[in-house]
Design a protein around this nucleic acid. Structure first.
Lengths: 217, 217
DNA sequence: AATTAATTTCAACAAATGTTGAAAGTCAAT
DNA sequence: ATTGACTTTCAACATTTGTTGAAATTAATT
């Protein structure tokens, strides 16, 4: 039997998460109904509540699923770049690269699940209602490790400067992966929001230069 | 009679816009009901539909109201910095400053209306559903003028690099004004999201350094 | 095969939603 | 005072919303 249909071997619970991920990414928490999720996933309405308790539980489960994977991959990238560096520790560029590169590694081009996920994170990050709480919960423990590494690479930095620089990085990063298509329109097609490799290759030096200007004293 | 109550002289139409602005900023388009707007504004439910046609019309009116003011102020700042510069034109730093400084000028500290507005724009900018369309419509004509000025300041820049740099600026800017409180939690209070002056003073050199690294050849 | 547990469906609930037509009120100009 | 345009209220509409018990089905265990 061919896969992919409504009778696919993929567990219903995962199909619900996939559908919710795609829909929340496009329309936000309040723009999606439980019925729409059920319809998209090809399951009964009540099943999402059974598996995740309620709508908010479903939303949290979507956010958590890939956060754990991303955090592990980023941590591994940070450890690797530390190991490859000499005793002075890695450069600013190498640390930022370790933070960004894993976002492309997860088969970003092929796997639309990850694309939906990053669109969702972008929206959560800059939303007043969710931004402070959820991003802190899911990502900040790891972010602190990257900032510690940056403190070593920029030993004379004022901590407040360092946190603001990371904040700017976070904003540039999430908007880029939000994939809104705005840069396409603004540039008349010269820059393409689908070109994540091009964005990544530019973001590393852009952000590193900013860190150095403010924190390299 | 004292002002400020439900019988204030302020026109009901403006009270609706103010209430909608605050609510949309906090909860997004789909997270706000017409009834909540009416209640917050102290007017009848049907009045918003009468003045703005429907919910979407109200949302557009909120976005448009201050966009026009901001665009004018930014244009004036750009012209002024061009006039003050020599014949070589303004520096990258001066151009970016002209783009950012007007956001603080509108009595940002006192007037919470502007704070709500920027929170709303932040959310719109990184939302898939609205980001591409609305930002282009309201802001891009002016943004193109700033990019033209940057092309003069960075004459050897590859246009694609320039557009990506602006995109990074846009992301850093909107997240900072989204005011989510995340930087407070991440930094344990060392950096404060209320400190918009501090953010502004750091963002100008941060972004300018990025532009120079990628576009100054 | 029998029993228990986990999953999925069905049907319905009360509450909340955007919108609208008609009535009532307000205000300025004649 | 009367007209006429504009503003505001009232009441109701048809949908849509999240959630939940109870029944039915499937899977796992004995």
């Amino acid at each position: 039997m061919a896969d992919g249909g409504a009778n696919s071997k993929v567990k219903r619970k995962d199909r619900i998460l996939d559908a919710a991920e795609a829909l929340f990414a496009k329309h936000g928490f309040d723009g999606v109904s439980m019925r729409k999720v059920a319809e998209e996933a090809g399951v009964d309405l009540a099943l999402s509540s059974y598996h995740f308790g309620n709508k908010r539980g479903l939303f949290d489960a979507v956010l958590m699923r890939r956060a754990e994977v991303l955090n592990e991959t980023r941590l591994a990238a940070l450890e690797r770049c530390k190991a490859e560096a000499g005793e002075g520790g890695p450069t600013v560029e190498a640390i930022i690269n370790a933070f960004l590169e894993p976002m492309l590694a997860h088969g970003y081009q092929e796997d639309e699940g990850w694309r939906h996920y990053f669109e969702l994170v972008a929206q959560v990050n800059s939303s007043f209602e969710w931004g402070g709480q959820l991003m802190t919960k899911y990502f900040d423990p790891l972010v602190r490790k990257f900032i510690d590494a940056l403190k070593v690479a920029l030993p004379n930095a004022d901590p407040a400067d360092l946190y603001w620089c990371y904040h700017f990085l976070s904003g540039a990063l999430t908007l880029t992966f939000a994939h809104t298509g705005r840069i396409d329109q603004l540039s008349d097609g010269i820059a393409k929001s689908e070109d994540m490799v091009g964005a990544y290759e530019r973001m590393v030096p852009f952000v590193a230069a900013g860190f150095r200007r403010l924190c390299d004293k």
